[in-house]
Write a protein that binds this DNA or RNA. Structure first.
Lengths: 216, 216
DNA sequence: GAATTAATTGAACGTTCGTTTTATTAATCT
DNA sequence: AGATTAATAAAACGAACGTTCAATTAATTC
């Protein structure tokens, strides 16, 4: 046999990507074979090589697009406000929403870095660093403005990101808590962790204001 | 050739374990071959099978002993005090010390769970759950005693553990921060995160007391 | 409707994998 | 010193791996 009726390159490539993210998240990159992936898509292994020259190219493509998606999501969610509290709240909400929505992609991007060549690893880490830098800027601004109480900006940023990304380990959409409830709880943990202080005029607690201002 | 001069089963087994933890942490379980491991130890691949019947047995042994070590470390560090603040401080200190000291073992135990058979996965997860339960008990006691301000005990426990375990991702012993500095910062982040409150008599801030009471 | 291009199959390649078997030598025991 | 046990090497096993190649058919273009 050869070309099958109804076959379509674009559809096949999309199916390969989706199946690959799920399989790699479940089995790991090394443990997933190209034959297994092909079977999931309903195709022979050789057909995969029409879309991705090597297995590593496939992995890199998935990771790069995941990181690009994360940066784009933050660009879209980034608030106009200069208020560090509002910016931090937006960062937390975007991070949790993105990571719950793209759980498998996050798993792949975080756990399979060691299977990348040196150059490609560098590219992915560069994007990750750019994303983390955004959080550090928010924390620094907030600390300088006297709104946050932070010992070490870099360390706090890492702690927050690891805490938030951790939701993908245990969160299941059909269980006890909704995404909104989880987000609310993580928001308040974050605000306490950075020691958000009473506003300059003392009239309102800034975190409470931020919660009202932003749809969860 | 056959038995080599000076060969000793106990030493070889110990060397295999150590090399395996390092190799699996660096390359991943699936990516590490038995021949690679044997070469690291200075032995032929067949010799490994005198100590571990299969590759998965080796992985499971490493993981089980790591988790047993973690539970034993906490049993030894567990404070006599009933004060939730002191107990939480001890938990954080023990967790960070253990995870920095056994970084590679933690990597293996956290990242290679999917390579375990169902039964063995269950065994490891049971130990992990027992360890996490200790933290939840501390948080619950503290919340009930009015010393902590916590929205959701289970969610806060997961957030704290992921935040703390995250140190193994970025911490390098020879860089900017010492273990003591990292621990101090994580302690204060933890205490803020759980909303430690002024003591009942209002005389002292409990976290400050706890810091003085416990050697960091 | 013929020619061309796109998509895929089926078979094969060389390599590496985890593991087993057998033989051999070092250390220990009697 | 001889017998036994412990620790290893060397070679081989079949299976699975990523990848390539040639052949074949569907869809598209002219």
């Amino acid at each position: 046999m050869a070309r099958t009726t109804g076959s379509d390159g674009e559809k096949t490539e999309a199916a390969v990507r989706e199946a690959a993210v799920n399989l790699i998240a479940r089995l790991g990159y090394e443990a997933m074979s190209m034959r297994q992936l092909a079977a999931e898509v309903g195709v022979q292994a050789a057909a995969l090589y029409r879309y991705f020259p090597t297995k590593e190219d496939l992995l890199f493509t998935l990771m790069r697009e995941h990181m690009e998606g994360l940066l784009q999501a933050w660009d879209a969610a980034r608030p106009a406000s200069a208020d560090p509290v509002a910016r931090l709240a937006a960062y937390v909400e975007n991070h949790i929403a993105f990571h719950i929505e793209r759980r498998h992609g996050t798993h792949v991007s975080n756990m399979e870095l060691r299977s990348l060549s040196h150059d490609r690893l560098t590219q992915i880490l560069r994007m990750r660093t750019a994303y983390e830098k955004e959080l550090r800027a928010i924390l620094r601004d907030g600390a300088e403005a006297g709104r946050f109480e932070i010992d070490d900006v870099g360390l706090t940023a890492m702690a927050l990101i690891q805490m938030m990304t951790g939701v993908i380990v245990w969160f299941r959409p059909d269980e006890r808590l909704s995404i909104a409830e989880v987000t609310t709880t993580y928001l308040s943990m974050t605000m306490r962790l950075v020691g958000v202080k009473i506003d300059a005029d003392g009239a309102t607690r800034p975190f409470e204001r931020a919660k009202d201002a932003i749809a969860v």
